[in-house]
């Protein structure tokens, strides 16, 4: 008798759980059936009126019905939750193509970027990065580099002179002198920096530009070593294997001195407008450090040898990005600078 009622109740309750249209309705069913004063609770109170054997049997049936109802109730509840969450999440869509608030990203000056790349290359090869002042002594800029006062090389480098007998450095080479005097041999260093030439400004001439100087002094330093490092650096800068060639070049602070060319990256050497149809691009001046330069910095040229090079950083950046007006670098023009 009770058994039949129980089955009917459970069947009806299951139907109602399935049919519940909202979490509230479902909860109402739960209270009515599974609540402390619900239908099943009433049944369990009636269990006491049954004979012990019957009680155990009906009790099991009751428990199983209760478990089944609770399971389907939980499942149903979970379904409501899931749907509610889905609806909320769906409603939270928004248009992320709208601009993000806050400032746009800034950028580093193109010379900074290329300079840092080259610094990293040399740091990884055990070179230190040195700095020197913009205002230099005449001695460091010229005399100590084997350019005595009446040397014609002084004509080539139009110099800004400042009060006190000093000058704005015409190249980064004085940092070689500072490096040798401060660190002594053995020495591997580079020195990027701002240099000055007193000349009229136009699209291809600037009175302020950037160079990167480098030097190695050790017991055994040869032209073969120099070419090795130059190839390493230029391959890293141009991100591919470059062919280089050395030809004689004259710089008072090196002997022998070289101009180093790379095979034109545009035409691969067959000749184009960029390399003026000769297949090679002039990259930098270099050479073995002149014994006078070592001697003047207190290094015995009989015991030590060295190479040095000087790279036109500004020119390299112009080449890298095909920039046709050198004045842009110091223009402060964000329309230019934000491109990098």
């Amino acid at each position: 008798m009770m058994e039949k009622e129980l089955e009917a109740l459970a069947a009806r309750a299951l139907e109602r759980i399935e049919a519940a249209g909202s979490p509230e309705e479902l909860e109402a069913v739960r209270i009515e059936v599974l609540g402390r004063k619900g239908a099943l609770a009433r049944f369990s109170k009636q269990l006491g009126t049954l004979a012990p054997e019957e009680r155990a049997r009906v009790g099991r049936i009751l428990n199983s019905a209760k478990e089944q109802l609770e399971r389907s109730f939980e499942a149903r509840k979970e379904a409501f939750h899931r749907r509610a969450l889905e609806q909320r999440l769906e409603a939270e869509w928004f248009d992320l193509t709208l601009p993000a608030p806050g400032p746009r990203p800034g950028s580093l000056h193109p010379v900074t970027q290329v300079q840092r790349e080259i610094e990293e290359v040399f740091l990884s090869m055990g070179f230190t990065v040195l700095s020197g002042p913009e205002v230099e002594t005449e001695y460091n800029n010229f005399d100590a580099l084997n350019i005595p006062p009446d040397h014609p090389a002084r004509d080539v480098q139009d110099t800004f002179w400042v009060e006190g007998g000093h000058l704005l450095r015409t190249h980064t080479s004085p940092v070689q002198v500072r490096g040798m005097e401060r660190l002594g041999p053995p020495l591997r260093m580079i020195a990027p920096g701002r240099v000055f030439r007193n000349e009229e400004v136009d699209a291809s001439h600037e009175h302020t530009f950037y160079q990167l100087e480098g030097m190695m002094v050790d017991r055994e330093v040869s032209v073969a070593h120099l070419v090795y490092f130059m190839k390493q650096m230029l391959s890293a800068v141009f991100r591919r294997e470059v062919s280089v060639r050395l030809r004689p070049g004259y710089f008072p602070f090196v002997e022998p001195g070289f101009e180093l060319d790379i095979r034109c990256l545009i035409c691969g050497g067959s000749g184009c407008a960029v390399c003026k149809y000769n297949g090679w691009l002039e990259q930098l001046g270099c050479g073995l450090v002149h014994p006078n330069v070592l001697r003047m910095s207190g290094i015995d040229p009989e015991e030590w040898m060295g190479f040095a090079f000087g790279l036109g950083l500004t020119r390299l950046v112009m080449m890298r990005y095909a920039i046709d007006d050198v004045r842009l670098f110091q223009s402060g023009d964000l329309r230019f600078l934000m491109q990098f």
Partner: peptide
Amino acid sequence: EEVGRMVGYDSITPQAPLIPSAPPPAN
């Protein structure tokens, strides 16, 4: 220089130096 340029600098094979490996002084 006289000898080097006449034998041709392109006849010199680039070569890594044998030097102790150490981190360079920091800047």
